[in-house]
Computed example of a mutant assay.
Amino acid sequence: MASHRRSSQSGLTRSARTTVLSAAAATAAALAAAPAGAAPTAPADGPKARVDRLYAEAEKATEGFNAAAERSGVLRERVGVLQDEVARGQERINRMRGVLGSVAGAQYRSGGMDPALRLLLTSDPDGYLDRAAALDRMGEQQAGVLADLGREQRRLDQQRAEATRTLADLERSRAAVAAHKRTVERKLAEARTVLNSLTAKERQDVDGADRASRSGGREDLPPVAGGVSGRAAAAVAAARGAVGRPYVWGANGPDGFDCSGLMQWSYAQAGVGIPRTSQAQRGAGRHVSLAEARPGDLVTYRDDASHVAMYMGNGQVVHAPYPGAPVRYDPVGMMPVSAITRV
């Protein structure tokens, strides 16, 4: 009986030892798999996690706002072009109708009598034949103008129909802009409510986690690694120069930026046009691995690519984080990387 008890205790000890060793191995594996420079994680249900989640949702809505606003701008330009084309088409039709009116008036003034009888009775046969030939030519001109008028009318109808459809698209795009704007403002208000409800200790914990994620803030502007092309170097210089400027959602510089606005503005300073949204910026060039990343590469984050930063070398990126946090340096592994794009 005692032997059985010793055997049971011995078995429990081996089981516990196995459990401890397995847990240690799993922990070591998790640490080994963590990306270099990754920010320390906060509890999934803690205040910082809630605020971060709201900021992420606001950022996703901001990129939706940017896309809808960009589409609205394109549609407004197209509507203007179509309206000008419709106006010019109507002017052409009015001129054609004027020509047709002149021809009809000339024919009316010369009508009313059989042409052979008019020739017989006229005192100036040569003059009559000249006028008759002119009327024939006017008749041919009238037929040509009528054909042109029909074509112009059909073109004008098509242009008006396209303008109507484009105006409807513009109204839908404006509605999308307004909807995204409301979502952004609601999420940011919720984040402010959470922050305002925190105790001093909780606020200190949130601020401390934020400072830790910044690896000391990097206000000293760490050196950029080498191997940068001309236009990438100019974009990197622009992004470095924007450090300290405020996050402003929906803005693309020069006084304030959201994440994708900073990327677009920085590359614009290098004479390079890139799309407005972080999702479109993810596809704006060739994808490379993190090991191949060079300064100037765009680093998009999260599965939906709702955040973007610029790689600066030395494991650092520059980005516009969220409201209340200025443009700054952070570790490249601050959140899950979606893609690294070389413009």
Rank of each mutant, 00 (worst) to 15 (best):
V318I: 14
G101F: 01
A191G: 03
R17S: 14
A36T: 14
V86H: 08
R172N: 12
R154P: 08
Q269M: 09
A69H: 15
P223K: 06
E219H: 14
M263K: 02
D124Q: 14
G217P: 06
H180V: 02
A39G: 07
S338I: 03
V337Y: 04
S173E: 10
A24E: 11
G37F: 03
L117M: 13
D124L: 12
P35F: 04
A280H: 02
S213L: 13
A106I: 04
P326L: 08
A69G: 10
A106G: 11
A106C: 05
S8Q: 14
A24G: 15
G46D: 01
L119S: 07
G112K: 05
A242K: 05
G216P: 07
A49L: 04
R95P: 00
D169W: 00
L12D: 10
E292S: 10
A339L: 12
V145H: 03
W265C: 04
L31T: 07
E190P: 03
D84I: 10
Q142A: 15
R231F: 13
T19W: 12
R282P: 00
G256E: 06
A209P: 02
R294V: 13
G139S: 14
V224T: 06
Y329G: 02
Q264N: 12
V243D: 05
A209N: 10
G64S: 07
T183V: 13
G250I: 00
V299P: 01
R342S: 07
A104K: 08
A147D: 09
G230P: 12
A320H: 07
R172G: 13
P323I: 01
R172S: 13
D207P: 01
P326W: 06
A42L: 09
K187D: 03
I340N: 00
D45H: 13
M334L: 10
V79G: 01
G101H: 08
S22D: 13
A225P: 05
E59G: 09
E171Q: 14
S7E: 15
R88N: 09
L156D: 09
M113G: 08
Q107D: 11
L262H: 01
A147V: 06
G227K: 04
G244N: 10
L119F: 12
G217I: 06
G150Y: 07
A212E: 06
A36R: 14
A44P: 07
A23F: 04
R214Q: 14
A233T: 09
M138Q: 15
T27W: 13
L146Y: 11
A32I: 09
M1D: 11
S278H: 01
H180K: 11
L120G: 04
G285R: 04
A56L: 15
E292L: 05
Q158K: 14
R342G: 05
R211Q: 12
E63T: 00
M113D: 08
A305E: 02
V224Y: 03
V79K: 08
D210C: 02
I274L: 15
R328G: 10
A242D: 07
L262I: 07
G127R: 15
R342T: 08
R294H: 14
Q107I: 11
A67Q: 11
K181Q: 15
V86D: 14
T19P: 05
G285Y: 02
R214V: 05
A280N: 02
L198S: 02
E63C: 00
A29D: 09
R165L: 04
I274W: 00
A234Y: 08
A235S: 08
